[in-house]
Simulated assay, not measured.
Amino acid sequence: MKISKNTAEHYIWGQQCDGWHLVKREELSVIHERMPAGTEEVRHYHEQARQFFFVLKGVATIEVEGEVIQLHEQEGIEIPPRVPHHMMNKSGQEIEFLVISQPTSKGDRVVLRD
């Protein structure tokens, strides 16, 4: 079945960020996300889910186990289970990216406090 942001299930998270479920299954999740300038998610890890972040638009900043990495358009990074990470938009423009999780990250997130 054909899917797009226009037809996908939409949700709002964090500080005015958007997500669209392109694939929503227990064994696989693909989400198109949008983060306005200056927003960020909380630092966390997943017990079982392996994730791949792929930037579609803009420059994303992701902290992985204390290392800060900039991801430009058409760049991505894989995050294994139990590895702390933190996605941020430190740019002055909105960013869009895909988050692919296997299995789904729903109910699998452990929030870390600094």
Rank of each mutant, 00 (worst) to 15 (best):
35 M>R: 01
3 I>V: 14
53 F>W: 09
43 R>T: 14
57 K>L: 12
15 Q>V: 08
113 R>Y: 10
63 E>L: 04
32 H>I: 08
25 R>F: 03
36 P>D: 02
99 V>S: 12
61 T>Y: 01
40 E>I: 05
106 K>S: 13
57 K>D: 10
77 I>F: 05
87 M>K: 01
87 M>I: 15
75 E>A: 04
73 E>S: 08
56 L>D: 04
35 M>P: 00
93 Q>A: 12
33 E>A: 09
30 V>L: 14
75 E>F: 03
23 V>H: 06
71 L>Q: 01
63 E>A: 06
85 H>G: 03
94 E>Q: 11
13 W>R: 07
26 E>K: 11
37 A>K: 09
82 R>H: 13
80 P>G: 08
57 K>Y: 10
88 M>L: 15
91 S>C: 10
93 Q>T: 11
46 H>Y: 05
77 I>D: 01
110 V>K: 09
93 Q>D: 14
113 R>S: 11
58 G>V: 06
10 H>Q: 15
33 E>Q: 11
55 V>D: 00
65 E>P: 03
86 H>V: 06
40 E>F: 08
42 V>K: 14
13 W>T: 06
91 S>R: 06
105 S>F: 06
95 I>F: 05
55 V>L: 02
71 L>T: 02
67 E>I: 15
48 Q>A: 15
9 E>L: 12
46 H>K: 04
35 M>G: 00
59 V>W: 03
74 Q>L: 11
91 S>A: 13
107 G>Q: 10
114 D>W: 09
52 F>V: 12
73 E>M: 05
66 G>V: 08
105 S>T: 02
59 V>C: 10
24 K>F: 09
7 T>C: 05
21 H>D: 09
38 G>S: 09
112 L>E: 07
79 I>Y: 00
50 R>S: 12
61 T>R: 04
34 R>V: 13
68 V>D: 02
74 Q>N: 14
98 L>E: 04
106 K>M: 10
58 G>W: 01
78 E>C: 11
105 S>H: 14
76 G>Q: 02
6 N>Q: 13
55 V>R: 00
108 D>Y: 01
16 Q>L: 11
97 F>D: 00
96 E>H: 13
78 E>W: 04
51 Q>Y: 00
93 Q>R: 10
60 A>P: 01
99 V>T: 15
10 H>L: 10
